[in-house]
Structure formats: structure tokens, C-alpha cells
């Protein structure tokens, strides 16, 4: 199971929501080319829960940045929402992020001067056309992540776990094709980590596609598929045996 085709097989009937084809990323560092990604191809299907693992320098952050449309590959293609977004300009990439992607970060990345409900609403400000049900949706999502009692609180009045719940609600507000989570439990204690992973699990069970970068094996074990990267290439793809898979 060392190629992308193998990953496809169990899910052949489900829609591909995102797909990278032979992407490479080359940085120039001190006059030397660094191959952060050296030809990676993966398909992500509706309802996938993929954990990307790898040691530092393996290219997992680079891959996540490409998947998040925060960066463009040097070569290769990236299909998202039916279009190749690898060559889009900056403005179109912003629109793609706003429409198809939800982000969950290690350090939550909430805007400090905004309340819980306002933080959840931030992506809606950049949606075109404007979602008329936005305010209502934000309240429903706050309830979904268990924070309906703290709508007016500021991030610094919340615990780490609560802040990450706000971030997850924010990642859902634009109804994204893929949720990208970058070490979502990296700043949390074990008990809270389990709570957050339970929440992600529940979202996945409800049909959300989640791609998560982590270096913790027990967190990666909660995903359905674990992709290991080494030196900018896929080293292994493992299917976890999950009853609900």
C-alpha cells in the first residue's frame, strides 16, 4: 500500500473532494534547492479522516499549506471543488479558501478582540454572496460545539479546549469541503485532547472530510487513514480498523 491507487480502492464509490497530483515544492535556501515535497499524489474522498504524520522536515507542513491554498506547488496539480487551484492567483486562492476549506490551528488562532460568536462569524464576512442565515448559523454551531452559554466571551476568557471548540465551529461556518487541522491537540492536555478528537470524530461521522497533521501516534490513531511522509514523499498509507469506517 504505497501508492495512491491503493488508497482509492476502499472508497471507490465516494466522491473525490480534493486531489493532489504529483505536487512538488522546491524552496531556495542559501543558494541551494530544498525539495520539501518531491512528488506527492493523494485523493481525499467525501467522509475521509486522514492523519498526516512525519518527522520535522518530512514535508507535512508544506503539504498542509498546499492543501490549505496558502501556498502554490512548484509543479503538479491540485483539484479542489472541481478546479485546478495550483495555478490560481492570490485573490482566487483567497476565494477558494473561503469557499471550500475550514482551518483548525494548533494555537487556535482566534481574534482576541472578538467574542465567541463573532469569531465563528469571521469567514462569513468574506463569503460572496453573503449568507443571509449567517447569524443563525453561528448560534447553531456554537451550540453544536457546546459553547452556547459563552457567546459573548472573549478568547482570553476561555480555556484552551473551549478556544479550540470555537475554532472548530469557525471552520464549519462556511460548510467547507475539507477541514484542515494542523496539530489540533498540540496545545492541549490529554483529557481535553480526547474531547477535541471526539468532536472531530463526531463531525467525521456526520460526513465531514478531515485532514489532520499530527506527530502524536495516539492522536493519529483516531483517524481512519494515516499517511506517513518522509523526505517529501509518501512513505506509507495505513488504514486504521475502525468500526464505523
Amino acid at each position: 500500500m504505497s501508492n495512491a491507487a491503493a488508497l482509492d480502492m476502499p472508497h471507490a464509490t465516494r466522491d473525490v473532494v480534493a486531489s493532489v497530483r504529483n505536487v512538488t515544492k522546491v524552496y531556495r535556501l542559501g543558494g541551494e534547492d530544498v525539495h520539501a515535497l518531491a512528488g506527492v499524489s493523494i485523493d481525499f474522498h467525501q467522509g475521509d479522516f486522514v492523519a498526516i504524520m512525519g518527522s520535522s522536515g518530512s514535508g507535512k507542513s508544506t503539504l498542509l499549506n498546499l492543501l490549505g491554498c496558502l501556498d502554490r506547488p512548484t509543479t503538479g496539480q491540485y483539484f479542489l471543488g472541481g478546479n485546478d487551484v495550483a495555478t490560481l492567483d492570490d485573490e482566487s486562492l483567497s476565494r477558494v479558501r473561503g469557499r471550500y476549506l475550514g482551518f483548525v490551528f494548533q494555537s487556535y488562532n482566534l481574534i482576541q478582540q472578538l467574542s465567541v460568536v463573532e469569531n465563528i462569524a469571521v469567514p462569513l464576512a468574506y463569503q460572496r454572496p453573503i449568507n443571509p442565515d449567517g447569524p443563525d448559523l453561528c448560534l447553531r454551531l456554537a451550540k453544536l460545539v457546546g459553547l452556547s452559554g459563552r457567546l459573548g466571551h472573549r478568547p482570553n476568557q476561555l480555556s484552551g479546549g473551549q478556544q479550540q471548540r470555537v475554532a472548530i465551529a469557525r471552520a464549519l461556518v462556511n460548510n467547507p469541503h475539507v477541514i484542515l487541522a494542523d496539530e489540533p491537540t498540540g496545545n492541549l492536555d490529554t483529557a481535553t485532547s480526547i474531547e477535541i478528537m471526539d468532536l472531530l470524530d463526531a463531525l467525521n461521522n456526520a460526513g465531514r472530510t478531515i485532514v489532520m497533521v499530527t506527530h502524536e501516534p495516539d492522536i493519529a490513531a483516531r483517524a481512519k487513514t494515516v499517511i506517513s511522509l518522509r523526505d517529501g514523499k509518501i512513505a506509507s498509507i495505513t488504514q486504521n480498523d475502525k468500526a464505523d469506517g
Binding site: 496558502l70 483567497s94 481574534i111 468574506y126 469557525r170 462556511n174
Partner: peptide, 16 residues
């Protein structure tokens, strides 16, 4: 800077 990064990631264009 951080807020700008967040807003950009969440879909804000340069113009916005």
C-alpha cells in the same frame, strides 16, 4: 500580523 494571517486563511483577499 497574526490577525491578518487568520483573516487571510479564512478567505479574506488582499483587497479586503
Amino acid at each position: 500580523t497574526r490577525e491578518i494571517g487568520i483573516r487571510r486563511a479564512l478567505g479574506a483577499t488582499k483587497g479586503e
